[in-house]
Design a protein around this nucleic acid. Structure first.
Length: 349
DNA sequence: CAGCCGTGGGC
DNA sequence: TGCCCAAGGCT
């Protein structure tokens, strides 16, 4: 029996029942696929329901404001996904007459849709025969076929892409693509794979060689840099000073408190003597709130401290990105995790 | 094209 | 604790 047939048979009895698999509507499939990029099913599931509820059609999505989209996306990370989705929705709604593309080549031209997502949408919606190549597929193929070429090398990407396309079922490409990803996610897992009950147990090269735990091979990326953020809570009489981040750094366009970034972790006295502090806050006294908070991102470690200015009324909106908001309206702003988790704690009482 | 873009969970 | 990884894409 072929590789594809074994996978499909496994999938028909053991595959998970996920909500986006019940439709062939390319818009709904697109919603799920963007949400699931670099995201576990359990983490993305509630966001999928939220977006499907708020925006039943691509037209509803296109008519939303970017602020509303980012607010709903809050907490999911990789926020450029939401901004690219907005661009794509507007293209589909206003240039393509509301008809979501279903062919691979057309999908590939849309913002936020790369090779993986174009293959997923085209195969799931109309059965186009394009093999998906995601982290699951890399892992399954490298193990079953015993390939130790690094999956994040140029050579590896070409090799696995070609192999994946050779293996796809031309009878039912959509089910095959679902099957190989589900198999990777639930059986051929990164850690503690279920080799004892695996349908490829008798033919898996890695299992035979005892190299399952060593595959796939991945070139290590360079380690994260450290950054030191000092946030200032300027709040008085129900008004809070908020700052909107720029577009060329982490958390682009998200809201936070006024921020002073320093080269290292400064003590309060030194911080208050910096030119920036004196420019923004004069000689206003601050009091620290709690200790240091470490926030880990994919390419940087952020060490954050929070301070409160008791005499907040003397602080002006000194940047055009700084604006006062009523405390009860903060919930409407799209904030990154460091900020909304602080707010949840600090204003809980 | 190597580096960047978030967050959460497992061990 | 620190590291890996998760239905990737953009520049």
């Amino acid at each position: 029996m072929s590789f594809a047939s074994k996978l499909i048979i496994w999938y028909q009895s053991e595959g998970r029942d996920l909500p986006w698999r019940k439709t062939r509507d390319p818009y709904i499939i697109w919603l799920s696929e963007i949400i699931l990029q670099q995201t576990r099913v359990e983490q993305g599931l509630p966001y999928f329901y939220t977006f499907r509820e708020h925006f039943p059609t691509v037209l509803d999505f296109a008519e939303a404001s970017e602020d509303e989209l980012l607010r709903l996306w809050q907490g999911l990370g990789y926020y450029s996904r939401a901004r690219n989705m907005h661009k794509t929705a507007k293209i589909v709604a206003y240039e393509l007459k509301g008809e979501f593309p279903v062919d691979y080549d057309s999908l590939l031209r849309l913002p936020g849709i790369g090779e993986y997502t174009a293959a997923a949408i085209s195969s799931f919606s109309v059965g186009e025969s394009k093999a998906v190549l995601d982290g699951n597929v890399f892992r399954v193929l490298s193990r079953v076929f015993g390939i130790s070429t690094a999956i994040n090398s140029t050579e590896g990407k070409k090799l696995f892409q070609s192999l994946a396309q050779d293996l796809i079922s031309t009878i039912d490409p959509g089910t095959y693509n679902h099957a190989i990803m589900d198999f990777g996610a639930t059986v051929c897992k990164p850690k503690a794979p279920l080799c004892e009950s695996c349908v490829f147990r008798g033919e898996c090269a890695a299992f035979e060689e005892g190299s399952v735990a060593l595959l796939p091979v991945k070139i290590k990326s360079k380690k994260s840099r450290d950054r030191y953020f000092n946030y200032f809570l300027v709040e008085e009489d129900g008004l809070v000073l908020m700052a909107r981040r720029g577009g060329d750094d982490v958390w682009a366009n998200m809201y936070e408190f006024p921020l002073l970034e320093t080269r290292e972790d400064l003590d309060l006295e030194t911080l208050m003597r910096t030119d920036e502090y004196r420019f923004f806050f004069g000689s206003t006294v601050v009091e620290p709130i709690g200790g240091i908070t470490k926030h880990v991102l994919s390419h940087q470690n952020i060490y954050a401290r929070f301070f409160r200015l008791p005499d907040a009324k003397s602080v002006l909106e000194k940047k055009d990105t700084w604006h006062y908001f009523f405390l009860e309206n903060l919930d409407k702003l799209a904030k990154h995790k460091l900020i909304f988790s602080f707010i949840d704690k600090y204003f809980k009482d």
